[in-house]
Each structure stands twice: as structure tokens, then as C-alpha cells.
């Protein structure tokens, strides 16, 4: 048991516990706070995978933007739903479905024909942030996906504004 493995196991336990709490607590605001803990756990996992740039993006984008946006939305719609009815009455059935899905994934994972890859160690080469920046703007590299992502964000911006503004004088 190396230090890295210990860190991974602790992080995984905290992340899974926070995830379970997120789906089981009644108060939605508390669920959002547990979700933030899950995001932190995933950031640590990225750190263990030595993807330093993604750690920063995970914290800035997921915790700094998405989680805060979700918290705002929860506060703006606070009286919309009674806390006792947050989960469907047939939650046991869906829990069984989720567990069966998990069992299916794990079965597929451990019967994977290229199983020896599962125990391989890290490939060499520390990730370089400058290399990511250059690759994103390189026509031979990932320029097209980068531009498509920016168009997607622009479309989301316009769509968000259009959906968000109040349409006065339309049918009520």
C-alpha cells in the first residue's frame, strides 16, 4: 500500500459517500453542498492522474460556476416543491435498477478482453499546460473541436438569454 493508493482510497470513499448523501438528503440545498464535495473529490482524482490543468478547470468551472449556478437556481425556486416529496415513491425500484447497471458495468469491466491493460502502470510524460494550449490552436491538432466548442458556448449564451428574459405581451 503506497501513499498514492491510500490517498486514492480515502478520496474515493469521501467522494462516494458524498454522492450517496447527495441523492438521499431531503433538503435540496444540502444536496448541492454534497455535490460540491463530490466535485472536490473528482478534482483530487484528476490530481492523482497528474492532469494538473483539469484540476484547475474542475475547481474553477464546476465548483466556481456550475455549483454556484445550481445553488442560485435552488434558492430562486425554494417554494416550488415540498421537501418531503423530493424523491419518487418508487425509489427502491430505481435503486435496484442502478445497482443492476453498476453490476453490468463491473462485469463488462472485468471480462474485458484487453484485461492486462487494467493493471498497467502510468505511461511516461508529465502533462504540460503549454502543450495543451498549443494543441488547441493548432490547425493540425484540435482547432476544429475548439472552435465548435466556442460556437456551442455562444449558442448556449444566446439560448440562455432568450429563455431567461421575460416575454412581455405574449399569451399567459
Amino acid at each position: 500500500m503506497t501513499t498514492m493508493q491510500l490517498i486514492f482510497l480515502i478520496t474515493a470513499a469521501v467522494t462516494i459517500f458524498a454522492g450517496v448523501m447527495m441523492v438521499s438528503v431531503r433538503k435540496l440545498l444540502h444536496a448541492a453542498l454534497w455535490l460540491i464535495l463530490v466535485f472536490f473529490g473528482v478534482a483530487v482524482i484528476f490530481g492523482l492522474l497528474e492532469a494538473s490543468f483539469l484540476v484547475i478547470i474542475q475547481i474553477v468551472l464546476y465548483i466556481g460556476a456550475i455549483a454556484i449556478l445550481i445553488v442560485f437556481a435552488i434558492m430562486l425556486t425554494q417554494n416550488a416543491i415540498d421537501d418531503t416529496y423530493q424523491t419518487s415513491r418508487r425509489w427502491l425500484v430505481t435503486a435496484v435498477v442502478a445497482v443492476i447497471a453498476l453490476a453490468g458495468i463491473l462485469l463488462a469491466l472485468f471480462t474485458w478482453p484487453q484485461g492486462q491493460a487494467l493493471t498497467s502502470t502510468l505511461a511516461g510524460g508529465q502533462q504540460d499546460i503549454a502543450a495543451i494550449g498549443l494543441a488547441l490552436l493548432d490547425p493540425e491538432g484540435y482547432l476544429i473541436p475548439f472552435e465548435i466548442a466556442s460556437i456551442l458556448l455562444l449558442a448556449a449564451l444566446i439560448g440562455g438569454i432568450y429563455v431567461g428574459i421575460e416575454h412581455k405581451g405574449e399569451e399567459k
Binding site: 492523482l48 447497471a101 469491466l109
Partner: peptide, 26 residues
């Protein structure tokens, strides 16, 4: 070192928790 499948198992568990949230929450 950490074996690759540890990460895969963790992500499978997280995915199914998310799946449960999507189906169950109202």
C-alpha cells in the same frame, strides 16, 4: 502505483449514483 481499474470502478459507482439521482429525484 494505483491500478487503472480502481479509477474505472470509482467512475462506474459515481455514474450509477448519478443515474439513480436522475431516475429518482422529482
Amino acid at each position: 502505483m494505483i491500478p487503472l481499474y480502481w479509477f474505472l470502478v470509482l467512475s462506474a459507482i459515481l455514474f450509477c449514483i448519478g443515474l439513480y439521482a436522475v431516475i429518482t429525484r422529482r
